[in-house]
């Protein structure tokens, strides 16, 4: 019962802040509401017994990506954008397409909802042999070692790319 209440609280928080993210006129408000969504999703992770991921979500998303967003908003002027039209002319078509998308996904999930319930025998008895972080770390550094290394290369490339894109041109290059 507590599980259900917590789920609905976090889900409502996530969805409401997400809607406010895409409807706010001011970009700074959007960023703040994005933080609300990210925290709510971290709560959802906690209800799914993914404690490590909840911590990573708060540290990397809220502490890293969101701060990066706020920094960029600080660097560029937001006053002008506030007085402009906020939505495309194509917003009606976009809304209709998205409505079709959500109906399609929901219908598919609803039809297949029984298949999500596995027979009890298939689920191994939940013996918490180790903590969540320990299990994730074991999987990450043994089975998924190669993808892990590739992800680190990707991050390196992204860091170099971001610096190259945003740096000032030296007089010699111009």
């Amino acid at each position: 019962m507590l599980e259900l209440v917590l789920f609905y609280i976090f889900a409502a928080m996530a969805v409401v802040s997400a809607i406010l993210v895409i409807t706010s006129k001011n970009v700074v408000h959007s960023a703040a509401f994005l933080g609300g969504t990210l925290f709510a999703v971290a709560g959802i992770f906690l209800t799914l017994h993914a404690e490590f991921l909840a911590g990573v979500q708060v540290i990397v998303y809220v502490g890293g990506i969101l701060v990066l967003f706020v920094f960029v908003i600080m660097l560029i002027s937001v006053e002008r954008a506030e007085h402009e039209r906020q939505y495309h002319r194509q917003w009606i078509i976009a809304l209709i397409t998205s409505a079709i998308l959500i109906v399609e996904i929901s219908y598919g999930f609803y039809k297949g909802r029984d298949s999500f319930v596995l027979p009890p025998a298939v689920i191994p008895p939940a013996v918490p042999a180790a903590g969540n972080s320990e299990l994730v770390g074991m999987a990450l550094y043994t089975t998924y070692l190669l993808p892990f290394e590739i992800a680190s290369i990707l991050l390196l490339v992204a860091v170099v790319g971001a610096v190259v894109l945003a740096k000032k041109k030296t007089p010699a290059e111009e």
Partner: peptide, 16 residues
Amino acid sequence: AALFTIGVIGVLTRRN
């Protein structure tokens, strides 16, 4: 699905 659709709407309709 709800969060994803909200994201899609944001990408398709906003100009910022």
